[in-house]
Simulated scan of single mutants.
Amino acid sequence: MGIYDDPFGSILIGSWLASILAGLVLNQAYRYFAMYPTDPITRKAIVVCSMLLCGAALIADYANVYLPTVTFWGNTERVQKQYWPVPMYVTMNTCVGVIVNSYLIHRFYTLSKNIVICVVLSAFVILGFAGSILVAITIQMFSAFSARDKAEISALIWLISTATADISIAVALIWKLRTLKTGFKGTQSLINRLIIQTVQTGSTTSVVSIVTLVSYIIKNDSNVPTACCYLIGPLYLLTLFYNLNLRQHNLSLSGSGRSTSDGNGINDGMRMDGIHIHRVTVEAADPTRSVPQAGYNNSSIKDAETGSYGGAKVTDF
């Protein structure tokens, strides 16, 4: 029976791991809707859509295990073919990745306003999506395992583009965050936490994408890459929730859960879709002077919000 470890055992284990990740996704979804009931409807729509796609992919994962191990068990000819669950989970998981990566690219653009880098990152995401669609179409047309080579080029385009997009988006966010120099210890500490969180979330999907790519290159007739593909959708969704739900955590670390705005409703600071760094005002110690003198002591820098000296208030992350 050991001959079935690769074809059936790998996808069975992959479905178990995907189920565990799906449980974590449901937990994070509950936290999100409980903590942020006033979030914009567009953001909630992104979350709901991603969860529905991920749920459809999980059903396809189960079906892809059930068909060869139960329905067609003992039928040598039937178990050597690929059926509708394969193109379904490939397409659904990739769609989740496109939604989450688009959200992260939007965050990068809001922070940097660098349209060139955003276009490049979007090109990798679109190329990966196109590759996955070609893989799904090829599998639908040529269902036999012996014909998997026909999808080799499109599979390589899909996996390489996806891995490149994940790594590039994480690197772009880290690079931009490192260039933010506020001059205030508290604000800089929060930015450093943002960098660490970006590394943690970006590395997870990147590692799985790279493992999938390497395993496919080493042995493309194995089901190990298939098992890895099961995990991509839930991991992307956990990345999305990780970015959304940690806002409350960072608010408590920054010491305030409140953001301010002027009379026109414009926030008094810099905002990156969840990151809001308030500006500070500079006041001279001498109340008779309206403009601070050059070379004035740094201790005269006063936070307009908190009244503390030498600090900056960071909220709404």
Rank of each mutant, 00 (worst) to 15 (best):
P37M: 05
L173D: 01
S168M: 13
A294W: 05
T315F: 01
M270V: 05
I167P: 10
V119F: 13
A34L: 14
S254L: 03
G311T: 05
K150V: 03
S206A: 15
T187V: 03
P68W: 09
T198Q: 11
S132K: 01
I117A: 12
R78C: 00
M88F: 15
A18V: 07
L104T: 02
I46T: 10
N114L: 00
G23H: 07
F184R: 13
T288W: 05
V291C: 00
G183E: 05
K44H: 12
W16R: 12
V224L: 12
A22D: 00
P7D: 14
G186R: 12
T201F: 00
R178A: 13
V90P: 00
I41K: 03
A284V: 03
I99K: 08
L237I: 04
T162G: 06
L67H: 13
I232L: 15
T260Q: 03
A18G: 05
A155C: 09
A123F: 12
T205D: 04
C54Y: 02
L104D: 01
G257M: 04
I275G: 01
A172T: 04
L12Y: 10
I169Y: 11
N220R: 14
A170F: 03
A130V: 10
C118M: 06
I41Y: 10
I153K: 04
S161I: 09
M51I: 14
F129V: 05
F241G: 06
K302Q: 11
N267S: 09
L235F: 14
L111F: 12
G14Y: 14
F124Q: 03
I301L: 10
V96F: 04
I99M: 13
Y89L: 15
T239Q: 15
A130R: 00
